[in-house]
Design a protein around this nucleic acid. Sequence first.
RNA 1: GCCCUCGUAGCUCAGACGGACAGAGCAAGAGACUUCUAAUCUCUAGGUCGCAGGUUCGAAUCCUGCCGGGGGCGCCA
Length: 587
Amino acid sequence: MSNQVLPLLGQVADTISQAIAAAHPELAGSDPVVRRSDHADFQSNAALALAKHARTNPLELAESLTAALDRHEHDPIAHVELSGPGFLNLTVPDHAIWGQLAARLASPRLGVGAPDEGLRTVIDYSAPNIAKEMHVGHLRTTIIGDNLARVLGFLGSEVIRQNHLGDWGTQFGMLIQYLDEHPETTWHHNELEPGNSAVAALDDVYKQAKAAFDADPDFAERSRNRVVALQSGDPTTIARWKEIVAESEKAFRDIYDRLGVLLTPEDSVGESFYNPLLTDAITELSDTGIAVESDGALVIFSEEVTGPDGTPAPLMVRKRDGGYGYDTTDLATIRYRIRDLKAHRLLYVTDSRQALHFQMIFEAARRAGWLTDGIEAAHIPYGTVLGPDGRPFKTRSGDTVRLMDLLDDAVARARTVVSEKNPDLPDDELNHIAEQAGIGAVKYADLSASRAKDYVFDIDRMVSFNGNTGVYLQYAHTRIRSILRKAGDPDAAIDPSVELQPAERALALELDAYGSALVEVGATLEPHKLCGYLYNLARDFTTFYEACHVLGAEEPLRTNRLALCRLTARTLQHGLGLLGISAPERM
RNA sequence: GCCCUCGUAGCUCAGACGGACAGAGCAAGAGACUUCUAAUCUCUAGGUCGCAGGUUCGAAUCCUGCCGGGGGCGCCA
């Protein structure tokens, strides 16, 4: 905890708050409205915002604040300048900026605190279907969810990842029956040619089974019986089902490894996990009168949402045939996560089309008394990945795009671009860099646009070395590492008496704001804000790089500039790490 | 019908707890390599912030109403 470094902006804001309280006691506690400024290091707009309450005009209030600031020595503020209709332009002393850098460099956490300590967050993301290939539809949930897991974890929250696998349903009856009747079918990963996955094979088997189901009434009947066997726990059927789940999870693991996401088999808590918990949840909903009979089904009528005919929209707790759908599972799930996992914060990372569904689930959980005021439940919606034609991304033949194919394409494209620019790279290094750049490009493209919007999957743009791309950030990192390698000496002390150049100042102030950027991501759950921060940081570094030579500088300037380089490199690497993107030494 | 979401430069997008001239990248034009990786940088040009009202000293930002795109609303998740 002693590692935490309060950002200068926060220190300045505290000082302005004190000035407000001193000059106008009745305004004590007001927001000091301190922001970064184009006209100084920071600016406070408090005078404009508060003039009304103080029954004075902004200029007068600003003058009284300036006077209050002048009355004492206020450490983080060196100069105050009144400007325009009442802006306070605030400059901090150079030594304070160098001090921040030194303190952050000395901290393994870059001086970032852990404000979420003591909170427990459940994040539901990825959730592919067993026996089906992961496709482009799983990209955003997996990448966004993983980033949030990392950021919230770093901010101190205890993060429980939940991969809500689609591992249950009537389709498994058909699949298992078909495999049973066609023992010659090869689908285990160790029976397949390299490069083929068990889920790809199972996907094919499913299609064949479906065809047989539709064509052969006897097979359809046997499949239905198999569903009953599965649901009633027939040992042979369950064993085969478990085998299918295990093989599928192995294939998912391959994708997760390649993508560099945190999900492990321990995070897998599929739909089937909730089977034994459904009746309890239903009984409770029914006993409290929240769930009611309707046309032979058990439903919860929403008090917030209506259907097309204007009547309350229902959640289907139990179908007329006695079966359960996803509404039931999701109700049991939220109950479990609150009661058993004791989460303070529940996040569901799924596409925006499910917004209404989650609104109704949360409403029901609130009415059931599960979701109480101290607990936050949030759907984290995101837009659709579009193809070049602006329609939801499909292959030319209209099929869904396999995630592995998409990653292969991105890596291949990155490889082409890298080898064009750097033809002398040995093959193994080129392949390694291409993998890092290609995967990073896909993830960064997904995370850097606002979550809520659709975006077009454009590989050429993603692997561009210019603009707001993952590759640009990786490259910025390699340039800094190159300087540091050449500099050799790792750790000389900063001399705080050195005067800062404008480019150094801008870079240093941006570095000081890293923790604030992360806190904002944690609050808004919008990863693109971290991307935006890192992109700004990289641009600030590039400006510094152009304006201020490092290795050729005289001491103590050289040491101070190396410190700027070190902290920038570490911040970029750390930030990319939170995005789940690697920061290579060379490109 | 109701609800959600998006609409900012030719293109792709930032900026939204009200604040100084609305910012990047791409594309276009002009420059800069004996210099720590030119995979870069500098400059120029380019915008009725969908439209119309309202609140305010001040609105891309808040409120209301429209227009347009996308999505959702009982037994698939």
